[in-house]
Each structure stands twice: as structure tokens, then as C-alpha cells.
Amino acid sequence: MNQLTELFAPNLNNYIILCSILFTIGVVGVLIRKNIIIIFMSVELMLNAINLLLTAFSVHHGDSSGQVFVFFIMAVAAAEITVGLAILVMIYRNTGSVSIDSLRNLKW
């Protein structure tokens, strides 16, 4: 029991490890997936990994500005995802696909 409590105690190291894992999953997702919607989700994953990290540090330092910052990121991310999805809809209408490789005419 004791060990379990220790494991789940709000230890900063644990949070850092968790966030790094989440972030890496996000990066890899962006890199290897072809579906733009999945890529978007991966981006969100990265953002939230950062948010979590900010919150953790905020608690650790006893400074609430990190948490305030998280709210800003959430707001901006919401706006960004709106624009991104709108673009995605337009891409689908034009190419009939949501693959990242459907638009590759801009070259040379």
C-alpha cells in the first residue's frame, strides 16, 4: 500500500516522464500518420502534454501563473483547431480525401 501511494504521489519526476511520453507519442503520430485528422489529434496530444507539464511545474513551484498560461493555450488551441478543421473540410471537398499526401502540387 505504502509503495502504491508513493508511486501515485504527485512526484514531479513522474509527471515529467508522463508528459515526455505523451509528447513523443504526439510527435511520432504527426510524423507517421497519413490521415490529417489523426495528425490533428496528435498535435492536440502534444499541446496537452505541455499543458500538463505546465500545471505540474506550477503546483511544484506554488506559482499559479503556469496554470493561467494553460488556459490561454487551451483557448488558442481551440481557435486553431477551428481554423484547421475548416481548412480540412475544404481539402476534403477539393480532393475527396483527408490524406496528408493528397496535396503535394507545391513543388520545384
Binding site: 504527426v30 510524423l31 499526401d101 496535396l103 503535394r104 502540387n105 513543388k107 520545384w108
Partner: peptide
């Protein structure tokens, strides 16, 4: 080196990372 720019977004993302 212009052939590096082949229009593939995933490739660009990879380069960026």
C-alpha cells in the same frame, strides 16, 4: 537541391522535427 522540396507535407514535418 531543389528536388528536396517535393511537396510532401509529412516529409517537411519530418525535416522540421
Amino acid at each position: 537541391i531543389r528536388f528536396v522540396q517535393d511537396g510532401s507535407i509529412s516529409y517537411y514535418l519530418f525535416a522540421m522535427v
